[in-house]
Design a protein around this nucleic acid. Structure first.
Lengths: 300, 300
DNA sequence: TGGATCGATAAATTTTATTTATGATATAAG
DNA sequence: CTTATATCATAAATAAAATTTATCGATCCA
């Protein structure tokens, strides 16, 4: 069974002539004759009734041609599909980001993305870092915005931006009039952190342990929103990343003298990704747009 | 594009392994690898994302496989279809007969046919001889019961039976008590014949001209039923074939001394017909059942 | 009846697919 | 840490298939 033979059969029905059909298929007449005979042998059925004066299709032949047409059409659809996908700047693109970044960063980049790559169908996925890495490695995601560092040999990444953490407090808090506090002042407080699994928690804990700051032990926020609510109600203070702070002006943010902790966001993708070139370009674009440096750092 | 490659792709998706997929397809692993790569080149699309640790399908690859499955399935349906048709004693069989035979002969043979060839889907067509020959030559009919002779080089036939014509008269007719009349007696009468296009008309005319019998000139019956009605109403007498007579006992039939005219019915088919063998068998069967001779006459 | 056209056939050729053998890389067991 | 054994990719050799060229026999039309 052979798609080319199907095309021969279809052309034969169309023209009612071996010679013309062969012409349409850009082959010699014997090539077509032989292949038709071959498919008849293979199917064990006579598709054409031949006589010295001409030929016509048997009922079985007619049915086979009708079905062959459908098959050829579907194959052509596959080819068309592939042509669409051929454009690396087209087709579906699944992008992930972790929960303390996604709602604050995605809104910025989608405008940029749809402007720059209008043929992309962008799919944004918000998951905790662990899940994102998993899905990335499984080929389920094309790329993900993750906080450095991620140790996966199969992934490579480009840095997009680095942002500072501020101390978020209620506007009625004692520090509401302050621009800056010292690490020593902060060390006297206890911070509310996110629950396990959030990468931000890890980053905050790192800073805390280095600075001797404690965590509120009997409660952990399940989301950034919860955490901000708690701060707002003066039930807590916490470390808040800059992009989150920018979106929540109802709170007051105090910076740490000598610079607070930071997080660096990178775009990660599989080294083997089909989208690799697009990703490199994307890192270039986004780091220029959102990064602090003129030069962007690739880790490939 | 190649159906075999589609099968490779499908097996690859099924097993997630080149080696196992190749095994299922009964080919070597490189054969499969190469063909997959080839189809990727051809489509201009990467279907698998390969890495040293393994591979998975790209979104495009998944879509292609899904469609390839449908295509392969449809091709398998074509193969199954052909297998069904492979049986020469199965599938649709279109049989024709002319109007002065069909209603009187078809009822007899359909029982015989469905018993002997239960897998056939029999289609009976009643048309005047000219149309039947036309449709036969066009491949639109598989075979037709026609009165000899038919002069068509592309057709061959077997004789089924020969029947006599009787003179049909009303039971109130002067001849109603007679079994036999002489041609001389008949020559004094005028016969009602069928309209042009009926082969029976030609046969009757042949006999009439040879026997000096005249035709009713101002009226011709449009069908056998009309003719029988006219006889019944004592408005006419006519030549009636035996099989018609048997079905219409309300009339009286007089035979001609020395034997009346006859018609021989043959089964005709194209020399090139796919059903040729079946037709030969059918002639054998039917001529034994309905013919007068032990030997049946083939004209092939 | 001769010339043109049609499809079938045969042999030669080209193209394509496949196998065998081998290499590079990663994983698992000792 | 090393060896053994997977994995898939690659290369060259081989086998298989489709195609072309050339030709034939038959029909058709003038």
């Amino acid at each position: 069974m052979n798609l080319q033979t199907f095309k021969y059969l279809i052309a034969l029905e169309k023209h009612g002539s071996f010679r013309l059909a062969a012409e349409e298929c850009f082959v010699s007449q014997p090539a077509l004759s032989i292949q038709i005979k071959k498919v008849e042998d293979e199917l064990g059925v006579v598709l054409l009734e031949r006589s010295p004066k001409g030929f016509f299709f048997t009922p079985c032949g007619k049915e086979v041609v009708a079905r062959a047409k459908k098959v050829v059409q579907q194959v052509e659809e596959i080819e068309a599909l592939a042509r669409n996908w051929h454009n690396p700047y087209g087709g579906p693109l699944s992008l992930g980001a972790f929960p303390t970044l996604a709602p604050y960063f995605f809104p910025h980049i989608i405008d940029h993305l749809v402007d720059s790559y209008p043929q992309l169908q962008i799919n944004l996925i918000e998951e905790k870092t662990g899940i994102l890495v998993q899905r990335l490695l499984a080929g389920d995601l094309d790329a993900a915005f993750l906080a450095l560092p991620i140790k996966e040999d199969d992934l490579e990444y480009g840095e997009i931006f680095t942002e500072e953490f501020f101390i978020g407090v209620s506007k009625r808090h004692a520090w509401a009039e302050r621009d800056q506090i010292t690490p020593q002042e902060l060390a006297a407080e206890k911070l509310l952190l996110l629950e396990d699994g959030h990468c931000l928690r890890g980053q905050a804990l790192d800073y805390c342990s280095r600075s001797g700051i404690g965590e509120v032990l009997n409660f952990r926020a399940s989301s950034m929103e919860t955490l901000l609510q708690m701060i707002s109600m003066q039930r807590a203070i916490s470390l808040v990343p800059q992009c989150v702070a920018e979106k929540n002006p109802q709170l007051h943010y105090v910076s740490l003298e000598g610079g607070g902790p930071t997080r660096t966001i990178g775009l990660y993708w599989r080294k083997s990704s089909v989208r690799r070139d697009l990703m490199l370009e994307l890192v270039d674009d986004l780091s220029r747009e959102y990064g602090q440096k003129d030069e962007f750092a690739l880790h490939i």
